[in-house]
């Protein structure tokens, strides 16, 4: 279960970082149809959408990093 959650967080995190980069690079008219903010003929870049996706992606990767850490045994008193 722990392994599955870690993998899901990593996959989703990487996907969101890629989505963020796509928002920064591509104008609104070239975004895939299922992306929020996609508009035909629009040349604007949705920078804020990109920042939000990138930040959430980073947060998911950080979660996976800590969640998958091996448990450290406490020294005996």
């Amino acid at each position: 279960m722990k392994r599955a959650i870690t993998i899901a967080a990593v996959v989703l995190g990487v996907a969101l970082i890629v989505v963020g980069i796509v928002y920064w690079v591509e104008p609104a008219r070239s975004l895939p149809g299922f992306f929020p903010g996609e508009e035909a003929h629009s040349t604007t870049h949705h920078v804020k959408h990109g920042i939000a996706a990138f930040l959430v992606g980073l947060a998911l990767l950080a979660f996976a990093w800590f969640y998958s850490a091996p448990k450290k045994s406490k020294p005996a008193a």
Binding site: K48, H49, I51, A52, L55, V56, A59, A62
Partner: peptide, 14 residues
């Protein structure tokens, strides 16, 4: 601070 900044940032952007 990071956990608090993420919702503030996303809501601010939106």
């Amino acid at each position: 601070l990071i956990v608090a900044t993420i919702p503030a940032g996303i809501l601010g952007l939106a």
